Structure formats: C-alpha cells, structure tokens
Computed example of a mutant assay.
Amino acid sequence: MTAPLFTVLGASGYIGSRLVTNLCSLNNTVWAPARDDPSILNRPLGHLLYCVGLTGNFRSRPFDAIDAHITLLAQLLKYANFSSLLYLSSTRVYLGSERTDEDAPLTINLSDSSNLYNLTKLTGESLCHNSGRKNVRVARLSNVVGPGMDPASGNFIATLLSEARSGHVLLQSDPKSMKDYIHIDDVVNWLPRIALEGRANSYNVASGIQTTHEQWLQWITTATGCTQAIKSGAPLHQFQKINVDRLRREFRVEAKSISDWLNTPPNVTIK
C-alpha cells in the first residue's frame, strides 16, 4: 500500500515541525512548503494539516493573525487540491461558555481585545464547516507542552522553564490557576488519525485533566533546584475542564499523563 501524502503548513512552528518529524518516521510522504509558496494552490496536497497560526503575539499583530487564521485558509478551501484538510484551532474558544464539548454554544465578549484570537479561529472554523468541501475537519488544541518549547512564543510553561534555568522563577499568576495541558507526543500521534479517519467535523484535542500552576511550579523547582516567588496580587486564571469524550470514544485514546511528568525525579535534565 502506498503511504499517504501529507502536506504540513506551518512546519516551522512547534507543532508543525514535530508533526513533520513524526510523519516522516512512519514512512509517510511529507511536503512542508515554505511560507508563501504559490504552488500550494496548484499541486496535489494529499492530507493537508493546517498548523499556521499566531499565539502570544496576536495582540500586537492583529492583521497577521487574520491572514494566518482566515485569509490563507479561505484560499485553500476555494482553490486547493486536497484529499482532506485539518484546521488547528484552540480550546480557548470555550472561554466564557458553560460547556466545553464540541457542540457547545460559544460566547464572545467583543469588548475584550484578547478575544481577537478566538474570533479569528472561530471564523476559520466556520469557513471549514461551510466551504462545501469534503473531509474538512477542525481540531481544537488545548495547551501543548513538551521538550523544546520556545519561551519567546509566550508559552506559560516554556517561560517558567526559561526562568528556572537562570535560577529563579517568579510566578505571575495565582498558584490555584489551572488549565488543561496536552503533551506534544499525543498531539502529533492523534492529528494524522483525525485527518485520515475522523467521522465528526470537529474534535477537542486535550487531556481532559486540569493541572494547577502550583503543581507546575513545584515540579520545576524540584527538578531544577531554582528558587521561587509569587507576584503579589497575582491574578487567578481558571478554565473549565475540556470535554474529550468524542476523541476517546471514536479513537480509543488516553492522553499521556502530565502528572507522570510532574512526578519526574528531581535529577531530571530539562531540555
């Protein structure tokens, strides 16, 4: 049987680059075009994994966020030759909503500038669902963690690790803050399966487990021996538990336990 062709857009990013490595290790045919490569609209793409996006810097680059999350996607949905397309969105879209299943009604506060990210991602999702193209799906990713995270990206855990290497961590949020975290190994294993086998049009790609900032802080200080402090008046950031019933039921998967990572022996070398 011929290995499927995967095209990964955003292959220079944290998730995209690791997707390429994992797909190649499984002997798939993988194309990772450079940014602005015009040939993506006139050659077969196979199974297209859309990993293009802005995260922590979207507030200072609003037009780039629109281009990344909407404009390029619209061109691909209109003109590209693909067998399937999987658009990477975010579980951030559940902020302010009472439920976190894929069919939950969503609430957006337009006066909050931070919601530009959510609005552009949801517009991209809507384009996917209403394009008329077959085999177009959405994966809403939770907070992805793993080796090699870049603190310049604004990733919370990457920032803590970077500070820990310098010897001192200052936690800028209430230790009781909590989020859902998913390991990069699970992400790169599950996304191709969703692209090839998914029966629904959207999936939460998350662990379904809440981890507190206090747990992360304890693990990092134990693992590195750094000192720690908590900023006075640090704000509390709490997000609802992400519903992963659809993913578990359809693909029979369980997330790699972040708690195992948190229980890593103190002499661990963090890379």
Score class of each variant (00 low, 15 high):
Lys256Asp: 14
Lys176Arg: 04
Pro147Cys: 07
His213Asn: 11
Asp112Ala: 07
Ser25Gln: 14
His213Tyr: 09
Leu262Asn: 14
Asn118Ala: 06
Ile182Met: 14
Leu110Glu: 09
His129Thr: 06
Val268Ala: 14
Arg61Tyr: 07
Ala80Arg: 03
Arg43Pro: 01
Ser84Ala: 12
Leu48Tyr: 04
Leu76Arg: 03
Leu73Pro: 04
Leu127Lys: 00
Gly124Lys: 00
Thr107Ile: 06
Gly208Gln: 10
Trp219Phe: 13
Val138Trp: 12
His183Gly: 15
Ala223Leu: 07
Asp112Asn: 08
Arg249Glu: 15
Asn143Thr: 08
Leu122Phe: 10
Thr2Trp: 15
Ile209Leu: 14
Leu160Cys: 01
Arg59Phe: 03
Asp174Ser: 05
Trp219Glu: 12
Ser17Met: 07
Leu48Ile: 04
Ala158Asn: 02
Val145Arg: 08
Ser83Pro: 10
Leu247Asn: 13
Leu95Glu: 02
Ala255Tyr: 04
Pro147Met: 09
Ile270Thr: 10
Ile40Ala: 07
Tyr87Asp: 13
Ile220Ser: 06
Ser97Cys: 00
Leu73Trp: 02
Leu41Arg: 00
Thr123Glu: 00
Asn109Met: 08
Asn115Ser: 05
Leu95Pro: 05
Asn267Thr: 13
Glu197Gln: 07
Arg249Pro: 14
Leu196Glu: 10
Ser83Asp: 08
Gly154Ala: 03
Asn109Gln: 02
Ala11Trp: 10
Asn109Pro: 05
Asp245Ala: 13
Phe239Ser: 06
Arg35Gln: 04
Leu106Tyr: 10
Asp150Thr: 09
Asp64Lys: 08
Pro235Phe: 04
Gln215Pro: 02
Asp67Gly: 01
Ile220Val: 07
Ser89Asn: 04
Asp150Val: 05
Asn135Pro: 00
His183Val: 10
Lys231Ser: 01
Ser60Glu: 12
Gly10Pro: 10
Gly13Arg: 00
Thr212Asn: 02
Pro62His: 11
Phe58Lys: 01
Ser257Arg: 01
Ser177Asn: 07
Gly167Cys: 03
Ile15Thr: 05
Thr212Lys: 01
Gly198Thr: 02
Ala200Asn: 03
Ser202Ala: 04
Gly13Glu: 00
